[in-house]
Design a protein around this nucleic acid. Sequence first.
DNA 1: ATAATAATTAGCCAATTGCCTAATTAGGTA
DNA 2: TACCTAATTAGGCAATTGGCTAATTATTAT
Lengths: 94, 94
Amino acid sequence: MQTVLKALAHPMRRDILAMLRAAPCNASQIADKFDVTKPTVSGHLNILMDADLISQVRNGTTLTYHIRLSVLEETLGGLMGMFDIGNNNEKNGN
Amino acid sequence: MQTVLKALAHPMRRDILAMLRAAPCNASQIADKFDVTKPTVSGHLNILMDADLISQVRNGTTLTYHIRLSVLEETLGGLMGMFDIGNNNEKNGN
DNA sequence: ATAATAATTAGCCAATTGCCTAATTAGGTA
DNA sequence: TACCTAATTAGGCAATTGGCTAATTATTAT
């Protein structure tokens, strides 16, 4: 929860996630889209990895990154639960 | 979106919101619950105010804080929309 | 072994965060 | 006015964040 929300608190990281939502990408492809250097992208990818929001698959010299949607869903669900909003209106079983 | 997510990225601020979700409170009541000084709480409340996540109502010398649930809902909805998750499965009108 | 490419880690720096104490503002009351 | 309480703003400090360049690791190909 904490690491995920911290990861989501940076706009570039959200945009990276949105990009990976559309299709898996490698670090160079990502760096091409965002006007920063590769090491900067790598840093953001590390943070997203720590939050379990993405996973990586090596294919030769390139690492392809995939979004882990379930983690995103669980976190947003957890937040909604914390404030009792969104997930229909089955507030509490009696 | 950005200011809201930054505000949500701190656990004490989420806990303050959860407290206000249960009932409106003033700054002293909040400071009593969290083992930090009042100025620290005040700083967090400022950040939550900037994000429009709370509003304040003066009543004499005390300020009572209220959660603004709609902002929370819109932000979480926006996030879900950004990643196309959660809000049922009406993905796109054809 | 050497070279080339993909990507990372290391190290530096400015800006921000988060906390504290001290000082100030706002409102109510004797 | 003077005083008291609620709460904020001001200012300082250590830790974190987010960016960069330079150096390193990992894999493949010649």
